[in-house]
Design a protein around this nucleic acid. Structure first.
Length: 875
DNA sequence: TTAATCACG
DNA sequence: ACGTACGTGATTAAC
């Protein structure tokens, strides 16, 4: 039965590991919990990943084992189990029982032996086995069908030992691990081995002789007199050590593979143990909390035809869609709730009701929804222009805490103490198994969401008001959602022919380059595979590997650029990568996204995703269309006005982030620079290098530009050194000089970090928040990252606030001026419009005017614009 | 599904 | 000494 997977856990070893890996946590009664906690985390992770059908946790039984009759001092001199750990074993056993996992221990035997015996039994039937332990000795059990997972550093970080991995690591077969232990011994188990023989020597000897027995048969051929002497003197001890290190695979266990069938946890019990031990994070995170608590009956009625008497002045409304891509998704039905009565109208029937459509368009009828942008977009597709949307659950939750990435009602509900909703995954399944359930179930799911919105509205609104974020939510994000919805629905026209022709050119060039590369390499290989490319460059051609990744050599562009002088293949590869990217992502990728009915691309803006307040763009991403390199920039020729007579009009903020920094830091020098409309990178170069404006050369300006970027990102000398390819010391000098020239900036950076430490969050101009709990972490990396974020988020986030406000003002102004111009795209600091030629003159006036006055800073905002017959021509 | 790479601001 | 620049999304290879 190949679908079966048997999971065997070494209970003692894992408990020890967890105990020493984690700090001594306690619950409110002072009981230590770290070992149980670590074990649970590990268990959750493994179960998630492996989906075992059979499980067993093996424990050591007592002090004496059969090994003690071989060697009295086996495991001698061991430290006594700390009492802080001993007290946790009863809880651990209780927890394992609650999980429904079989526990087993056997007099005179150790956990290893139970695991070894069961894994060999499974072997005979060819079943997949996964063994988990903190003890490397168990790697001797690895076979083609048995993988041994050994915990690394922490407890959830795992190294997987297959026979191949053992070979790679030690150059030995799993069974030779026993011989290795026999020779080198094991201090923790008090196995003596051969004194003076360590891992290195043991491996060397075994590679030559295969086993301890063969080694002693061929002692004469061992080089090194000293070594030979030691081996001779300790022959018996070596052989005994090998016996001790051998895991018994034929122990008289009274448990069979059938006995350890796993049939799922009793979550009530598991949760009650978690509560007893105060595992707060686990309690919060778990899906089961919702499942457990959402069994409440929800009253609802399925209506095939809407009766207008059920449409109230104030209702929550939910359009249940089958896919998050709402521009094309099927509408499964509509749920309505007034807090008392809930209704479900299957399919698209509701939109066939005149009463319902009128109700949707009536501004005085208030609607509360989960995602107003999607709701409006789907309604618009059905010819209805919805109005009166006064609450958007997703946006409210996002403003409250952008880091939660809670995009579904169940997750948001859980966060705010409302549990009566199931997740979409629980209803529809995921991956290939995803499907629409029967109508009753679907109706219950959708109406539960509608009811959830109703209940969550007051909770969220209260919280947003308390945090002075209500205005940000209600007057910025909510109106913006409508504007984005319109932009998405309008879409941008793409000239297919332009892309197709570029694609042909690229294909030809790519084929040529591919041929050249293969010729230079002397063999054909997949250039797109970093793994294969690494072998060619760093092994076959012998180029020096500059950087490594987790899995091998890095072949990233910055590495290759450093090798450009070493071999002519490098330049070809860089070229190939560049063109390949253009072709696959931007030619083929965009062509796939053009809607056949209107020849347009309709991206979706994710308005509740980024932690800083920016938008993101998906299906496709129109915020990363090439511009920096001319060849790529030509892609923009394909983005054209929807009416051939019209033009594309683009406007962008100049240096918005540094202007925001000037405003927030109130640094006199920086403010003055912007007030005098100076080139900010040149100004920075002047101050950092102590030179006059006319002495700044291109290199100095380039360095200054990198420093300015660094400042915005939350400076570090290492980061700057990487970007400028200079030493860390040199980078540190630049930073120091910068901060001396702009002392207000330094003060501001320090304050940001301080604020984050005191309040736990940083804020933007419009009071958007980002929580940074890790700013007090004792982990250097986590803390440093939080510190850089504390410096960067107010800057990046405030810039996002500004352009969002500008978009609202702009939409309003276009409406007021009665213009046909359409706002189409937003790319973080720029807005792209399409306009009839007769409106250009007015746009040239109002676009800069509106954008520059979106939010008043203590430095001027500057907007630059251009227009032309395609996006490419707006330069 | 994850890691590597590279496109943008 | 630690090991990083901030924020995103799409494609590809290789499990």
């Amino acid at each position: 039965m190949s679908s079966e997977k048997i999971l065997l856990l070494d209970g003692n070893s894992l408990a020890y590991r967890a105990f020493f890996a984690l700090p001594l946590l306690t619950n409110e009664h002072g009981i230590h919990t770290n070992a149980v906690y670590g074990f649970t985390m590990m268990l959750q992770k493994i179960m998630d990943e492996e989906n075992p059908t059979h499980m067993l946790v093996a424990f050591d039984a007592g002090k004496t084992t059969f090994r003690h009759s071989t060697f009295g001092e086996y495991k001698g001199g061991r430290q006594k189990t700390p009492p802080e750990l001993s007290e946790q074993f009863p809880y651990l056993r209780k927890l394992i029982d609650a999980y429904g996992i079989k526990r087993y221990e056997l007099e005179m035997y150790e956990a290893d032996d139970i695991i070894g015996t069961l894994s060999r039994q499974a072997e005979t039937t060819g079943q997949q086995v996964v063994i988990v332990s903190g003890d490397k000795d168990l790697t001797q059990l690895a076979t083609d069908s048995t993988t041994v997972y050994i915990t690394r550093k922490g407890i959830t970080d795992i190294e997987k030992y297959t026979p191949e991995h053992v070979q790679e690591k030690y150059g030995l077969t799993p069974l030779q691990i026993i011989d290795m232990k026999g020779l080198m011994g094991d201090a923790s188990d008090n196995i003596p081995g051969v004194p003076g023989v360590g891992e290195k020597t043991a491996i060397k000897l075994l590679k030559e002789h295969g086993s301890v027995e063969n080694l002693y048969k061929a002692l004469d051929s061992v080089s090194g007199a000293k070594l030979k002497e030691k081996l001779v003197a300790n022959e018996e001890q070596a052989k005994m050590s090998k016996v001790l290190a051998t895991i018994e695979t034929n122990a008289p266990i009274e448990v069979s593979l059938e006995d350890i069938t796993y049939s799922g946890p009793n979550m009530d019990e598991v949760i009650s143990i978690w509560k007893e031990l105060s595992f707060k994070t686990l309690l919060e995170k778990t899906e089961y909390v919702a499942e457990e608590q959402s069994t409440t009956e929800t009253k609802f009625e399925i209506v095939k035809e809407i009766d207008f008497t059920l449409l109230k002045d104030e209702m929550s409304l939910h359009l249940e869609l089958y896919d998050e891509q709402y521009h094309t998704a099927d509408l499964l039905g509509i749920a309505l709730s007034d807090g008392e009565q809930s209704y479900f109208v299957p399919g698209e029937a509701a939109f066939h009701s005149k009463e319902f459509c009128t109700w949707l368009e009536d501004e005085s009828k208030t609607k509360y929804v989960v995602d107003s942008k999607a709701t409006q977009a789907v309604s618009r597709k059905h010819g209805v222009s919805i109005s009166g949307v006064e609450f958007d659950l997703t946006l409210a939750a996002y403003i409250d805490n952008a880091s939660l990435s809670a995009d579904d009602v169940a997750t948001i509900g859980k966060e705010y103490g409302y549990f009566n909703v199931l997740s979409n995954e629980q209803i529809y399944g995921k991956g290939a198994k995803k499907s629409v359930p029967e109508e009753e179930k679907l109706a219950e799911h959708a109406t539960r969401k509608a009811l959830a919105i109703w209940h969550l509205k007051p909770i969220l609104e209260k919280k947003l008001k308390e945090n002075e974020q209500f205005k940000l939510y209600k007057e910025l994000e909510l109106p913006l959602a409508s504007i984005l919805g319109t932009m998405e629905s309008d879409g941008v026209k793409v000239d297919k022919q332009v892309l197709v022709e570029m694609g042909h050119d690229l294909e030809i060039k790519l084929q040529q380059i591919e041929k050249d590369i293969h010729a230079l390499a002397g063999e054909a290989f997949n250039i797109n595979s970093p793994k294969q490319l690494g072998v060619i460059l760093f092994e076959k051609l012998g180029l020096p590997p500059i950087k490594k990744t987790k899995t091998g050599y890095s072949t990233a562009a910055d590495v290759l650029e450093k090798l450009a002088n070493e071999h002519e293949i490098i330049e070809q590869i860089l070229q190939y990568r560049q063109l390949g990217k253009l072709n696959s992502t931007y030619i083929e990728g965009l062509l796939k996204e053009i809607h056949t009915d209107d020849g347009k691309i309709h991206t979706r803006y994710q308005q509740a995703l980024t932690t800083t307040g920016r938008l993101s763009s998906v299906n496709p991403n129109l915020q990363n269309i090439p511009i920096r390199i001319e060849e790529g920039r030509k892609i923009r020729k394909a983005f054209v006005p929807s009416n051939p007579e019209w033009v594309m009009f683009a406007a962008d903020y100049s240096q918005i982030e540094l202007r925001v920094l000037a405003h927030m830091s109130e640094d006199d020098n920086l403010i003055e620079a912007f007030n005098n409309n100076m080139d900010i990178h040149t100004k920075t170069a002047m101050d950092v290098f102590h030179v006059g404006a006319d002495e700044v050369d291109s290199n100095m300006r380039r360095a200054a530009k990198a420093v300015n970027f660094g400042i915005v990102y939350g400076i570090s000398d290492y980061g700057l050194s990487q970007s400028l390819d200079i030493t860390r010391k040199e980078a540190a000098v630049f930073i120091d000089k910068y901060l001396k020239s702009f002392p207000g900036v330094k003060e501001y950076m320090d304050e940001s970090i301080q604020t984050a430490k005191q309040k736990g969050f940083v804020t933007t101009i419009l009071n958007r928040r980002r929580y940074l709990p890790e700013i007090t972490s004792s982990n250097f990396n986590l803390r440093s990252f939080a510190e850089r974020t504390a410096m960067n988020t107010p800057i990046q986030g405030s810039a996002a606030d500004i352009i969002k406000k500008a978009m609202i003002d702009m939409a309003e102004r276009l409406e007021k001026e009665n213009m046909q111009t359409k706002m189409l795209l937003q790319v973080h600091d720029e807005l792209i419009f399409e306009a009839p030629p007769e409106e250009i003159a007015l746009l040239e006036k109002i676009v800069p005017e509106v954008m520059e006055s979106a939010i008043k800073l203590n430095v001027p905002l500057k907007v630059e614009y251009a227009y032309g017959s395609s996006w490419y021509d707006t330069k």
